[in-house]
Structures are given as C-alpha cells and as structure tokens.
Amino acid sequence: MEHGSADESASTFSFTDEDHTLANTLRFSLNQDPRVAFCGYSIPHPSEARVNIRVQTTGVPANEVLKDSCQDLLMICQHSRHTFSLAVQDFKNEQALKAMNVEE
C-alpha cells in the first residue's frame, strides 16, 4: 500500500506481514541506488506485523525506484542461490573423489 502526496517522488510504502528481513534488505538496495535521496524504514508497533518504508527520490516516481530495487534484490538472490548450489556441488564431487582415492 502506498501513502504519497501529489509529489510522486516521495512516498511511504506500508507492507503487512513483513518485518526487518525484507525491510532492511530493501533499505540496503534502495540506498545503493543513486536516484534515492533518502530512505528508511520503521516498524510502528512491535505487536503489529507491519513495516513502513519511506522513499524520497531526486525526481523520479518513488514506486518506480522501489520496484527497481526489488528487481535488483531478486537478481542478487538468484545469483547467490546459483553460486551456492554450484559450490555445494563442487564440494560434494570433491568429497566423492577423496572417498574413492581412500578406498584404492
């Protein structure tokens, strides 16, 4: 849900059922975007599952920037998952090879 004003370049986005897990990573990727002038997040009440993410940009619509940040995060995750599974596969192959050498 987006709470903005007439000015599209500054908005607060409110996500239910999310917490620091998503908000903190989003803040990271938003901060790394040169179009972002300010961003931060808050959890208004600890017993309510909700985070507010504030995004202020240098002119472009805030929801575009947030979308791009999510896309970046998505790509990062996919790359990490891919790299991780390759590393695990390499390790398993290596272990199998070692076990074979021991038997000989």
Binding site: L26, C70, L74, S85
Partner: peptide, 18 residues
C-alpha cells in the same frame, strides 16, 4: 536454497503489488 527462494518470493510479491 529454500531460504533464498523465500526472499525472492517476497521481492516478487512487492513488485506485483506495485
């Protein structure tokens, strides 16, 4: 790998919502 997939799902959900 499942944990990373969950974070991906979260991102996708935000993108579709926006």
């Amino acid at each position: 790998t499942e944990a990373v997939k969950i974070l991906e799902d979260k991102c996708e959900r935000v993108i579709t919502e926006l």
